[in-house]
Design a protein around this nucleic acid. Structure first.
Length: 939
RNA sequence: GGGCGCAUAACUCAGCGGUAGAGUGCCACCUUCACACGGUGGAGGUCACAGGUUCAAAUCCUGUUGCGCCCACCA
């Protein structure tokens, strides 16, 4: 066994603990070995040499399962590095929902949830204590994140960035805000905004999620017309808001209400009179009673109506969602209690007119899940129109390429309908707004506390207590992390202001609006340049049945469990039941699943095409890919054994032998497909081709063929040894981006690094031209393979044991025979023929032989296998009849096609010719089968 | 209501104008000295439905049905 560890150095120390290749592949052992070495050796370090090559900027992947991540640093590297890092990271960013942690919003949410469990809110703690607690949690959680990073092999950059509010980022945020204000784009206004009473903050439109299909009721009640017995009945899903009603609207053309136009209604709980207004925009005559109550302060449509008619806006809620003074006797009740109480009170006054069930959509806060309340509030807004137009143009002119392009329409739709962005948040964790409020209500926006505000101790001037939406700072990320607003060398070098430079962004489509679009807008606005040139939007991971992962549903699968293995026995019975329902293939795996390893998980994710919006994670598929890694492991083990002591060739060896030329040609083809796939962001195509090449070309054919050659002790086949070494090395280099750990482990066995540690990650990624492509050889080998498969099929069909050798005859004209004649040895080896196969042009049919036909470019080859004494004649008859039936079907189809004059006249000549040739070979095959049918009797 | 996407073998998914593909699962045989996480074969699909374009359609167009997502929303 090739057990001794080859000399390999790392930072001056020998790798004496290198594993023995004679052991079976164990992902846990392999993967625990490499991470630290990569880090210490500088594989992750940015390539800062300015050698004119394009620079790729790759964002840090989200590191953990809590939803929080840190994005303080970008990866900067050359193309070669980028290819590798891209893949190393892809497993991440598709597994975890990306979120931005510039201001630590996710962390803040975690802490708020902790407080909730203690029966408190952040307001009970106070601003200072709360912020301190968030710090504490962040620092504590660091350790856990670190572990997960190590296992997955992502960049360690995050460790260098402290979990602190970065001063430079703070400066960039302030600068951006002030600039926008100076340019008149950032303004303060009082508007109806989305308010989350639970978080007690304003939200942007994007942070509101709609819950569909909520059960509610449509409640009807009457307003009495002032000074008359008449009434108008209105319907509402939110009766409590009637306390803020300042009008009832009807359609101007509605005949039912024409007599009432201009009259006033009596508000049952207040002494104000409510006018009847006519409004064709708000009112749909056909819906309900055709009359609508108008609450301008708590509904977006009503707000707009109020503006049109100059109605009073009466706010009835406190910031925590309870009734304020305007609620009159209902003051202090929360929204639900108030609803009940108002309904009851209306009923007591004889105004209730019944209720019916109604399905409605509830707007909910993305963070807390609380029902969002439209509230009138003074906030900071950012004008979006012009920025959006530029961002649209950038994508349309391909300055930014969106991949897959299907997303462009979604992007367009968002930007074309964009509303001004409410950027202020009444939270305590984040970048505070650089505005100062004076005693007389004056407001100063400035980079630092303005002189006219007086000293810090002057409490009449205070800084705006609000912080910015976390996505505001995130939008600055591409350049704020490079030192902007300073014109730093990093910014100059890495930010793609130079058209020669290229940057890619890879992320999930769920933050296309939140983050990607805003980075493009801010990039163009502040730097006049796009922040990256290509955006790859990958799908989201969902469970095996296609459902979104959710804790409630119990279908969340922790990628670390997939990597390390997990046991079902540790789960509660109903948790397990839910899990098995969501992952049918895992349910069949017995008492859990084994450790698949990070490589297998990563490779599996790489095989899903980016156009897949949803990636249904099937553990079985991961298992299959782990088998592939095992295959790589064992193939390398075999190769090392066959090679003995050897030197890895520095370049592709020149080969004469058919099989050597063939495998190099296939390698060249695989390298081409892999490169093309990666460059076009079709990682799946690259990964699948490498899987196919390694297993089917290299293992199933090439290794089988060369085994006896290299084991032959009478002669040393240097050409084949060099070809094997080269091909294996190139395969590992090709595979490394997809399966970094196992390839690194094996590469170190192939290659001695005499002085300092180096990694396969630093080796060149193979190209098509590294090895010669030889299409003619590939065709010849295809013929050989056809012959071998035909003989093997006969074997398998007749259940002939391997130990029983089969007499073999190959017939054909001289051209076709010439192809295979030189490869008797391989045919004998792989078919288990009895002695050397016989080759002949024509001749008497040997008794008891069965026939199959292999079509080749130079005419058909007939493969005759002697079955006498080896098989049951009845069995043989069934087989032939089955094949005939299939042939007849194919023949009928092609005859139908060829007999149609429209086909022969109109189809391209080559296509017609091809069909004719097909027909011919089918006919021949049929004739031979008929022949062997008669041979059955001879058995 | 507007937009986008998906419906292909038992399952998870490729293919996207020229005779249906992969992995897993299934069946048969093989413990042949890299690997049973293996080998050799095999079975299995009128490519959701209905029209249309074309010599030719899983592939292009129209419509229908079912599912998913996004945006906007009905008082």
């Amino acid at each position: 066994m090739h057990g001794e560890s080859r000399p390999c150095y790392f930072e001056g120390s020998k790798m004496s603990d290198a594993p023995d290749l004679s052991k079976p592949y164990d992902p846990r052992e392999v993967e625990s070995r490499w991470y630290d070495r990569w880090e210490k050796s500088g594989v992750f370090e940015a390539n800062d040499e300015d050698d004119g090559r394009p620079v790729y900027v790759i964002p840090m992947p989200p590191p953990n399962v809590t939803g929080s991540l840190h994005m303080g640093h970008a990866q900067r590297c050359t193309l070669e590095d980028a290819l590798i890092r891209y893949h190393r990271m892809r497993g991440f960013s598709t597994l975890w929902q990306p979120g931005i942690d510039h201001a630590g919003i996710a962390t803040q949410t975690v802490v708020e949830r902790q407080l909730l469990k203690e029966g408190k809110t952040r307001h009970d703690l106070g601003r200072e204590a709360f912020v301190e607690r968030v710090w504490k949690w962040k620092n504590e959680s660091g350790g856990r994140i670190a572990l997960q990073q190590r296992v997955l092999g992502a960049s360690p950059d995050w460790r260098r960035s402290k979990f602190t509010m970065d001063a430079d980022l703070g400066r960039a945020v302030t600068e951006a805000f002030v600039l926008l204000h100076e340019q008149g784009l950032m303004y303060r206004a009082t508007r109806l905004i989305n308010w989350c009473p639970e978080c007690r903050t304003a939200l942007s439109d994007l942070e509101v999620e709609n819950e569909e299909g909520a059960n509610g009721e449509l409640f009807e009640f009457a307003y009495k017309v002032s000074g008359s017995a008449e009434e108008i009945i209105v319907a509402t899903t939110r009766p409590e808001t009637m306390l803020g009603d300042t009008a009832v609207a009807v359609h101007p053309d509605d005949p039912r209400y024409k007599p009432l136009h201009g009259k006033k209604l009596v508000h049952p709980f207040s002494d104000r009179l409510v006018p009847i207004i006519t409004d064709a925009i708000l009112v749909d005559m056909k819906f309900g009673t055709g009359a609508v109550k108008v609450t301008p302060a708590h509904d977006f449509n009503d707000f707009a109506t109020g503006k049109r008619h100059g109605l009073e806006e009466i706010n009835i809620f406190e910031l925590d969602g309870t009734m304020n003074d305007n609620g009159g006797k209902f003051k202090g009740l929360d929204r639900k209690e108030a609803r009940r109480a108002v309904k009851k009170a209306l009923d007591e006054k004889g105004l209730a007119r019944g209720a019916k069930p109604h399905i409605l959509t509830l707007p909910r806060c993305q963070r807390s899940g609380g029902v969002v309340e439209p509230m009138i509030s003074t906030q900071w807004f950012l004008k979006m129109k012009d920025m959006a137009d530029r961002a649209l143009e950038a994508v349309h002119t391909k300055r930014v390429e969106v991949i897959p392009p299907e997303w462009v329409k979604t992007y367009d739709h968002f930007l074309e309908n964009i509303q001004d962005w409410c950027v202020s948040r009444q939270l305590w964790w984040g970048h505070q707004i650089p505005a100062w409020h004076g005693p007389g209500g004056e407001i100063r926006v400035a980079r630092t506390r303005p002189a006219e505000c007086g000293p810090e101790s002057d409490t009449t001037w205070t800084q705006d207590p609000d912080v910015l939406d976390t996505w505001f700072s995130s939008a600055l990320w591409p350049f704020s992390t490079l030192g902007w607003p300073e014109r730093t060398p990093s910014l100059k070098k890495f930010y793609p202001t130079n058209p020669k430079q290229t940057s890619d962004l890879e992320t999930g489509y769920d933050i296309l609006f939140f983050w990607v679009a805003r980075m493009i807008m801010f990039g163009l606005h502040f730097t006049n340049e796009v922040p990256f040139r290509r955006v790859l939007l990958s799908g989201l991971i969902v469970d095996e049945t296609g459902e979104k992962m959710s804790k409630v549903r119990g279908n969340v699968i922790d990628p670390l469990d997939l990597i390390h293995g997990a046991s079902f026995s540790s789960l509660e019975p109903d948790t397990l039941a839910k899990f098995k329902k969501s992952y049918p293939s895992a349910a069949q795996m017995g008492d859990g699943f084994p450790a698949f390893g990070a490589d297998a998980v990563r490779f599996t994710l790489a095989t899903y095409p980016p156009s897949n919006m949803r990636i249904a994670l099937a553990p079985k598929r991961i298992e299959g890919n782990k088998h592939f890694l095992n295959k790589i492991w064992n193939a390398t083990r075999l190769s090392l054994e066959l090679l003995g002591p050897f030197e890895l060739p520095a370049k592709c060896p020149a080969a004469k032998d058919t099989w050597n030329r063939w495998v190099l040609s296939r390698l060249s083809n695989a390298a081409r497909i892999a490169r093309e796939g990666i460059e076009a962001f079709r990682i799946d195509e690259a990964a699948n081709e490498l899987y196919r090449f390694f297993w089917y070309d290299l293992c199933d054919w090439y290794l089988e063929i060369i085994k006896p050659r290299l084991r032959d002790t009478t002669q040393r086949d240097e050409e084949t040894r060099a070809t094997l070494a080269w091909t294996l090395g190139a395969s590992l280099r090709l595979l490394h981006p997809f399966v970094p750990f196992v390839t690194e482990e094996l590469w170190q066995k192939l290659h001695d690094y005499p002085e300092k540690f180096a990694s396969v990650a630093l080796e060149r990624f193979p190209e098509e031209g590294d090895a010669p492509r030889d299409v003619a050889i590939e065709a010849r080998v295809a013929t050989l393979q056809g012959v071998i498969v035909a003989a093997r099929t006969v074997r398998a069909e007749h259940v002939i044991k391997w130990a029983d050798k089969i007499p073999l005859v190959v017939r054909g004209d001289s051209a076709a025979l010439a192809l295979v004649r030189d490869h008797v040895a391989e045919i004998e080896l792989l078919t288990g023929s009895a002695g050397t196969p016989r080759f002949e042009h024509e001749g008497d049919r040997p008794k008891g032989y069965t026939t199959s036909v292999v079509p080749t470019a130079s005419g058909p080859l007939e493969i005759l296998v002697g079955l006498k004494g080896l098989v049951d004649p009845a069995h043989e008859r069934t087989r032939i009849e089955r094949e005939l039936k299939k042939l007849d079907k194919d023949l009928a189809a092609i005859d139908k096609k060829l007999s149609s004059p429209s086909f022969t006249d109109k189809a391209p000549k080559e296509v017609v010719e091809e069909s004719r040739a097909q027909r011919k070979s089918l006919e021949e095959a049929r004739a031979r089968l008929h022949e062997s049918l008669s041979l059955v009797d001879e058995l």
